[in-house]
Design a protein around this nucleic acid. Structure first.
Lengths: 341, 341
DNA sequence: CCTATGATTTACAACGTTAGAAAAACGGCC
DNA sequence: GGCCGTTTTTCTAACGTTGTAAATCATAGG
C-alpha cells in the first residue's frame, strides 16, 4: 500500500458517477457554491460519505496556485520560547484552516539566508520568519517576492511586515515592578555588549529607562554579560555577582531561562527569594509557573504575536497591497512568588 | 505580489522556449535523466538559471502522486523531549530530501485519533506517530491505508512498523549505575499506577529488574507516583519522600524533567548531590547538561530513532511489502556530576 | 400554452508536471 | 551512400481540480 496521494484513490469523478451528476457539481458541493438544490447536495454528500472521498490537495493547489501551507522559520525548537511560539502559531493557523511547515535555522546566519530562498518556499504560500543572526546588512535578502512577515526587532526599517514583542516597555515594566516592591539594587543578567538592536539591548534599554524614571542611578556593575540565554548562564551570572561582593536586592533575567538559572543559584546559596532577593524573568515560558518559587515574568503576548503574524500574512497572500505594517504585541506582567512582597 | 506558487511564475515552458528545446527535455534535465547530450543539458541549465526557474511542486506532486512531505504527530512541542525529537526528525528528513509537517495532539486521545484520519494525511506521503494517550483498544484505528511508523511502545503487537527506545534496559542500566556506585536505597519518581505498557511501567520494570539482579529487596515505599512528568512533579515527589522520613540514597527520575525537579528540591533542602543522594534521569534532554550539578541520564538514542523511523517510512512509501518491523534503539548512559562517586 | 427570468447544472479548458511511445538524429559498418 | 542500432528529443496524454461560459431546468407572468 503506497502513499495517501496515490493512484487508485477516490476522485471527484468517482463521486460524480456514483451520484449521477457532473464533476463540477461535486466540486460545487464541496466548495459550498450557493446555488445547489438541496436534493442534489444531499445526493452528492451521500456519495462522498459512502466512498470516503477526500479532496486531492495537490490538484487543488495546482489549480488555485495556493498550497494552504505557510512556513515558520525559527532558530531551534529546543529553545523553550520558540517551541511555545511554534505551538501558538500552529494553533492559530489551524483555526484559520492553514497548515504550518516549520524550518529550523540553528540561529546561523547562512542558514537564515538560505531559508529565504529555499526550494520549500515553493511549497508555502508565505513565510513567518524569526531571524536571530541576520543583521542590518542582510536587509536586502529580506526583499523577497512572496508574502513575508518578520518576527522580532532585529532588523528595522525594511519594507516588510513586522510583528514584534514590546521588548523595551516589557523590560521597563519588569524593572518598575521590582522598584515598586522596594528594590533599588537591581541586577540585569544576560546582557550582550556591543549589540544595539537585539532583544538584549532593547531589554537593557527598558531597564535603564525605568531606573531613570525613578531617579535611581545606573550602576554598570549591575549589568552582567551573558551570551547564551541558558539556565547555566543565569546561574553563573548570579554567582559572579555575589562572589564579587556586589550588593543586590533583585535580579532581572533578560529571559526566563536566565532567571530560572538565577533562582537555582540563589537556592544553592541559601538566599531567600523573594525575601532577600527578588527575581523576574521575560518570556513567561511554561517552566516559569513550575519553578520553586514560581517565577514572575513578562508575558510577551505570544498568542497575539502568532495570531497577528498569521493574519497579516493571510492578507498579503490574499493580495493586499497595503503599506507594510509594524505591529507590537501587548505584554503583561505575570506576578508570581519570586517577587511577592 | 502574491504567493510563490502563483500565476505568472516561470514554468518549464518558459525555460523550454528560451533554451529552444521541448518541455520534456527540460524535465529530463531537471530529473537527471541519463541520456542527455552535455551541450543540451548546459543550454537548458543556463536558461533555468537566467530565468530563475523553480519547479512547481504541486504539479509534480499531482503527477507523481507523492508530496515529499511526511507528517510527524507528537504530543506537544513544549515538552523538551518532543521538541528535541522533532529537531532530530527534521534534520534526518532534510538529509534525505524530505520535508516534515508537525502536528500536535496535546496527548489527547481524541486528538490522536483525529490525526490518523486528518485531511492533512492527503498532504503527506506517510506519518511518524508518537501516541501518548492511545491504548490497546485503539489498535484498530492504527490500521490505516498509508505508510505509518509508530514511535514508543504504548501499543504492542499490531501490524505496523514500530521504532522504540529501550525503556526497560535503559532503566535497568540507570539503576545498575546507581547500584554500582554503592547506592542501595534507590527511589523511583514519576510512576504511574495501573499502567502496564506505558514508558512509566516499562522503566519501573527495568528498575525492579536491576534490583533483583543485585539481590536488593524491592521496597514499594521507594516508588513514588507522579502523573505529569514535569519539574514540579519531581520536586513534589522528593519532598514527599523525605517528609515521610523514608531513607533514600539515590533518586531515579523516570524522565529528566522529574530528575531536574528532584535536583531542585534537594538543593532547596541543602542535601548534597551526589554526596548524600545521587540522581539519575532519563531522556538526556539538553537541560540535563546545564543543570547544577549536571545530571546523569539515559540517552535513548534520539537521533537513531529519528533516522530509523524515517528510513523505515521511506521504504514503505517506496512500496515495500516486507513484514512489519520493530526496531529498538540503542541507549547510552551519560555519566555526569549528579552520580559522581 | 409559451416565453422570459433566474436558478442549477454541465462541458471544456486550463493549472505545470511527468510517463511512455514515437520520431529524429547520430555514428559506424558494409 | 544506405542500413542498423543507439542516443537524444519530441509528442501526446494524463494527474484531479476549478473558472468560465454555455446549456438546461423550473417557475411565474402573459
Amino acid at each position: 500500500m503506497a502513499g495517501a496521494g496515490t493512484r487508485g484513490a477516490v476522485t471527484m469523478h468517482d463521486v460524480a458517477a456514483k451520484a449521477g451528476v457532473s464533476v463540477k457539481t461535486v466540486s460545487n458541493v464541496v466548495n459550498d457554491y450557493p446555488h445547489i438544490r438541496p436534493s442534489t447536495r444531499e445526493k452528492v454528500q451521500r456519495a462522498i460519505d459512502e466512498l470516503g472521498y477526500r479532496m486531492n490537495l495537490s490538484a487543488r493547489n495546482l489549480r488555485q496556485g495556493r498550497t494552504g501551507i505557510i512556513g515558520l522559520a525559527l532558530p531551534e525548537l529546543s529553545l523553550p520560547y520558540f517551541a511555545e511560539l511554534a505551538d501558538s502559531v500552529i494553533r492559530a493557523a489551524e483555526e484559520r484552516g492553514l497548515t504550518v511547515l516549520i524550518e529550523q535555522t540553528s540561529a546561523d546566519r547562512q542558514h537564515e539566508l538560505d531559508v529565504l530562498t529555499s526550494e520549500r518556499r515553493q511549497l508555502t504560500d508565505g513565510l513567518i520568519f524569526s531571524p536571530l543572526a541576520l543583521g542590518p546588512d542582510d536587509a536586502a535578502a529580506l526583499d523577497v517576492s512572496y508574502p513575508l512577515v518578520v518576527l522580532g526587532e532585529r532588523i528595522f526599517g525594511g519594507d516588510w511586515d513586522h510583528v514584534t514583542m514590546n521588548n523595551v516597555d516589557g523590560a521597563r515594566a519588569a524593572t518598575q515592578h521590582l522598584i515598586d516592591s522596594g528594590r533599588r539594587r537591581i541586577a540585569v543578567i544576560g546582557a550582550h555588549a556591543g549589540e544595539t538592536m537585539g532583544s538584549a539591548a532593547l531589554r537593557v534599554l527598558g531597564y535603564q529607562t525605568a531606573l531613570a524614571a525613578n531617579g535611581i542611578p545606573f550602576d554598570p556593575d549591575l549589568v552582567v554579560e551573558g551570551g547564551l540565554w541558558h539556565r547555566a548562564t543565569g546561574a553563573a551570572c548570579v554567582n559572579g555577582l555575589l562572589d564579587a561582593g556586589i550588593e543586590v536586592d533583585a535580579v532581572f533575567g533578560l529571559n526566563d531561562a536566565l532567571a530560572l538559572g538565577a533562582l537555582h543559584a540563589l537556592h544553592a546559596r541559601r538566599i531567600d527569594v523573594p525575601g532577600d532577593i527578588a527575581v523576574v524573568g521575560f518570556d513567561n515560558i511554561e517552566d516559569a509557573a513550575y519553578a520553586a518559587p514560581t517565577l514572575t515574568s513578562i508575558a510577551p503576548g505570544r498568542e497575539q504575536i502568532a495570531a497577528t503574524a498569521i493574519d497579516v500574512l493571510m492578507e498579503r497572500i490574499a493580495g493586499s497591497e497595503e503599506p507594510f505594517r509594524r505591529v507590537i504585541a501587548d505584554f503583561t506582567l505575570v506576578e508570581r512568588e519570586s517577587t511577592a512582597v
